[in-house]
Write a protein that binds this DNA or RNA. Structure first.
Length: 604
RNA sequence: GGAGCAGUAGUUAAGUCGGUUAUAACGCCGGCCUGUCACGCCGGAGGCCGAGGGUUCGAGUCCCUUCUGCUCCGCCA
């Protein structure tokens, strides 16, 4: 629509002048018949019959049909011809039942309509860049550019409401459990371990930088030393790493910490919290305790540390069965694993080629397969397998005619990643994942360290404040790779939704950890001296857990992307299409901060 | 840092082997219409085919570069 029409229609704008909403647009029912009401909202659809004009009035609660009739209110009717999509209006009128056979069962308010006797135009609108409806999905770049219009769509508004309900359940539950909600700083110091920090230059201290917190980890531990006992925070966290469908540079954690507890107490509390969320948000009663599995078992059976246990297709280690095979690729491999697809014989050559491409993402060279036919094993590799090897494989996988087996051989990390991810990919393709099921799983006994080949040292799997199991404390000095952590992740349907640990609460334990990470005493002192000091001042045993609120909400809402449960998310390049952030700053601002850009990077 | 997919009217998409004036639906504008509800009917406007370069008699279509969005690998204690 042209600008001219909107400007012309602006002549009709009126002030509220004391008008007050009596109901929202999702509320009126047949029993409200005869009520005098005042509704306000946006014009969703206008159906102008020349005589009667119907308008679906929308707010975040729903739609109500309002009727302008030339007989009932000639003046109101005459002016209603100007109404356009997304105009904002207030109507006063009487609720009446719709005529026989004219009810709309698809609408909550479909049994009634509001016969308007007076109305006001509160706001005009240009024609929206995309329709404000659930059933039409605009491109994501448009939605992000016009985010406030996208959020007008019922599905998006619903997601934000669900997020609110989740946060409310968290606050209520933790309050009842004696937790204090305490804020920790956004402007803090950069810590070398972990993700890349977002840095904030300090004007008052030229050359120095704050870092935005990757998590409130150290502060919440200091709160335990302070004796605050039970802390929680719905905390914004920042990590300057690349984005994914479930990863944003700023995200929200439900972060909590408890004193005088071991793993069991933290997990029990977390189960209660999750159960409360599911009850308040979905009305579903969960039955804790949740299943548990060690990290080693998860990797062995599922190839990933966050298994989706809603379906089978477990991985089977057949390394021993093919150890002396004529097939060199198998015989020489560090690890050979197999995965059976029941009835997979029907997969086409094209399907298998696609899956081969899929596993290459994880560094696989190819994907070996065997179709179990009535009288033969159809496969490019069958000729390499002896009778004994076939028998061993058939038994390990309980093979039947009609099955298909995929194999992956090579370095253990690659084999697990390739088959573990192929398993999920296949299950999605083949429709093997049951709907409406919530499989919670604790994964425990993580390794404390993993070796970083690039840095040539051990790095913490969880974070450097995690405590080793008591029986593994000695291993930190001798064989750190064998030490297990007192850490636990909560996995839901193959997504990690939370993770935590029991921390090192003695300075000695924490020093041993830093030493295993390759920091010398001086380095540990300069980077984490304040924490070590605190641990020397009467620190209680403590531990905690943090849940990703965004990911949790995404799963509760059944959303495909974390962006659908965040009001104003960033794109994959971490920019905001609405505000155009990030953007250049003025020379004056840079001068004040004592910063200078390279010529090629200047924008302003 | 790397791989893949996508970008055509306001929107969503089609566009064959490189060939006339680039289609459709919805939306928008005008007209008609008193029971519609994704109202209906008639008419109309609307295009830098993401951008730049190249090949060609001729490019939405082929090639190169680049930008943007999405998915993934690396990364994310």
């Amino acid at each position: 629509m042209s600008q001219d029409i909107q400007q012309d229609h602006n002549r009709f704008l009126k002030a509220l002048d004391g008008w007050r909403r009596s109901h929202n647009c999702g509320r009126l029912r047949a029993e409200d018949n005869g009520a005098e009401v005042c509704l306000m909202g946006w014009a969703q659809h206008r159906r102008d019959h020349g005589g009667l004009i119907f308008v679906d009035l929308r707010d975040r609660y729903g739609l109500t049909q309002v009727v302008f009739s030339p007989e009932a209110a000639p003046e109101a009717h005459a002016e209603a011809h100007i109404l356009r999509s997304e105009y904002v209006l207030a109507v006063k009128g009487r609720v009446r039942p719709r005529p026989e056979g004219m009810t709309n069962p698809a609408m909550n308010t479909g049994e009634i309509e509001v016969l308007v006797h007076e109305w006001k135009l509160l706001g005009t609108s240009k024609t929206p860049p995309f329709p404000i409806e659930d059933r039409t999905e605009a491109g994501e770049n448009l939605r992000l550019q016009w985010r406030y219009l996208d959020l007008r769509r019922p599905r998006m508004a619903k997601n934000l409401e669900l997020r609110h309900t989740t946060a409310r359940a968290v606050r209520n539950y933790l309050d009842e459990q004696g937790f204090l909600e305490i804020e920790t700083p956004f402007l803090t110091r950069s810590t070398p371990e972990g993700a890349r920090d977002f840095l904030v230059p300090s004007r008052l201290n030229p050359g120095d930088f704050y870092a935005l917190p990757q998590s409130p980890q150290i502060f919440k531990q200091l709160l335990m030393v302070a004796g605050l006992d039970r802390y929680f925070q719905i905390a914004r966290c920042f990590r300057d790493e690349d984005l994914r469908a479930d990863r944003q540079p700023e995200f929200t954690q439900i972060d909590l910490e408890m004193s005088f507890v071991d793993e069991e107490r933290v997990m029990e509390l977390a189960e209660g919290l999750v159960a409360r969320i599911w009850e308040d948000v979905l009305g579903i009663k969960l039955a804790p305790p949740f299943a548990r599995m060690s990290y080693d078992e998860a990797m062995s059976r599922w190839g990933v540390d966050k298994p989706d246990t809603r379906f089978g297709m477990e991985l089977v280690d057949v390394t021993a069965a093919v150890r002396s095979s004529a097939f060199n690729l198998f015989a020489k491999a560090e690890l050979v694993k197999a995965m059976k697809v029941e009835g997979g014989e029907s997969l086409s050559r094209k399907d298998i080629d696609d899956y081969t491409e899929f596993v290459k993402i994880y560094g696989a060279q190819g994907l070996a397969w065997i179709k179990i036919r009535e009288n033969e094993w159809q496969s490019p590799i069958a000729k390499f397998l002896s009778e004994g090897e076939r028998a061993a494989i058939a038994q390990a996988l309980d093979l039947r005619v009609g099955d298909l087996v995929f194999f992956q051989a090579g370095a253990a990390d690659m084999v697990n990643a390739a088959l573990g991810n192929l398993r999920v990919h296949l299950a999605e393709k083949l429709g093997l994942i049951p709907e409406g099921q919530f499989n919670f799983l604790w994964v425990t006994d993580f390794p404390l360290f993993e070796y970083d080949a690039e840095e040539q040292r051990y790095v913490a799997c969880h974070h450097p404040f995690t405590s080793p199991r008591a029986q593994d404390a000695e291993l930190l000095r001798t064989t750190p790779e064998r030490a297990k952590a007192r850490a636990y992740d909560l996995v839901l349907n193959g997504s990690e939704i939370g993770g935590g640990s029991i921390r090192n609460h003695t300075a000695e334990g924490q020093r041993a950890m830093f030493s295993a990470l390759g920091f010398d005493a001086e380095e540990a002192e300069s980077r984490f001296g304040f924490l070590i000091q605190a641990l020397e001042q009467g620190a209680p045993p403590h531990g905690g857990i943090a849940f990703g609120l965004d990911r949790l909400t995404m799963l509760l809402a059944g959303a495909q992307s974390i962006r659908d449960v965040i009001a104003f998310p960033k794109t994959q390049k971490a920019s905001c299409l609405m505000t155009q952030a990030p953007a250049g700053v003025s020379a004056k601002q840079l001068r004040e901060l004592g910063l200078r850009l390279r010529e090629t990077e200047k924008k302003a």
